[in-house]
Design a protein around this nucleic acid. Structure first.
Lengths: 183, 183
DNA sequence: CCAGAGTGAGACATCAGTGTCTCATCTGGG
DNA sequence: CCCAGATGAGACACTGATGTCTCACTCTGG
């Protein structure tokens, strides 16, 4: 029976999300195929990681689309974005750490696109008077990534419930830790 | 001349902070000693990483002490903490990712101590009515780690200035992205 | 001055992960 | 039914990192 490359990719993503140093052997086993077949579809670990990178980018963009960043208040858009991106957070964290190894090589241009779209959202919130302007959109974007990683870690390690993921991140990112006098 | 193990450790920390996959050979070269001597002082990569872990814990605790978490408002304490912990942020990020590989093994109890001290700070802020209570101290602590990692990444990649490190993190962690009507 | 400790350089074996190949087996379409 | 293509299992060699050992050199203290 012909192997479904997409299924293999998702199995690899699920495994590497938990154990980033997993062997090609383990990846193959996780996907339910032999190492030989895995190598026929992805000729080498780097090829596999690149494919996972493309998958992560595609899913991120899908989440960005689903979140409709241009509609409604920027706060609501951020809320939708975090909710939509939650399933990808683990894979994102893996790729994030893996990309540090590609130091010399150029990184996939897709990330820049995603960064730009998220930055644009924060900028929209600033221009609309919704967000404070003393924190740059670039930093807010990077901070969102960090909080997503922390949230994914909380859930993964069992210290936090998946249902709280969106609330925890959005509330901290938007409102901060300080208690609000108003409302 | 006798090698100073602490100097070796700091050189290793500086290198591994930038390139987490550095070889023992590269570590030795970075420390200005031979691989043989490096192995005489740290018999294996895992021993070296454990030693770095101890160093990171010690420096974290020193930062916690220097920040005087019990004095003044919790907000000011957080501000001092971030400022004091900044030099360790890179090493912290390295150990953070490295600890994921120690899955089965027990993690150093020192981290729990540090977590507890930071959590206690956030709890103090909550009990004093300074911080909101719908975000758990455990999450605030984890979020702080994530923001420290993001900040270190911003500085490391040149996207942000070191002088903004403390301000970026503290302002986002405490105040959030939303614009404040008051003040 | 001399002995001993510490170091640098290099050789060597080992080990894990990987890339590659072969061959038997299985499946599906003509 | 039969064949072509795909898969699984395993063997084999290669590579990079590592652990270990030896030997020569250089300090320093007695």
């Amino acid at each position: 029976m012909a192997v479904d490359p997409d299924h293999v990719l998702r199995a690899a993503a699920a495994l590497l999300t938990r154990k980033s140093t997993a062997t090609m052997d383990e990846v193959a086993k996780a996907a339910g195929i032999s190492r030989a077949t895995l190598h026929r579809h992805f000729a080498g670990r780097d090829v596999l990681v690149r494919a996972l990178e493309s998958l992560g980018i595609a899913e991120c963009e899908a989440a960005l689309d689903a979140a409709r960043l241009d509609e409604g208040t920027a706060s609501d858009a951020v809320r939708r974005l975090v909710g939509a991106i939650e399933p990808v957070a683990g894979l994102l964290a893996f790729l994030y750490s893996e990309n540090q190894l590609f130091e010399g090589e150029e990184l996939n241009a897709g990330w820049t696109l995603i960064d730009d779209r998220i930055s644009a959202l924060f900028r929209r919130g600033q221009l609309g008077g919704e967000f404070r302007i003393d924190l740059t959109p670039a930093w807010l974007t990077e901070a969102l990534y960090g909080l997503l990683a922390s949230g994914a870690w909380m859930v993964h390690s069992g210290k936090g419930a998946p249902k709280d993921f969106q609330h925890m991140i959005v509330e901290l990112l938007l409102g901060g830790a300080l208690r609000r006098e108003e409302s």
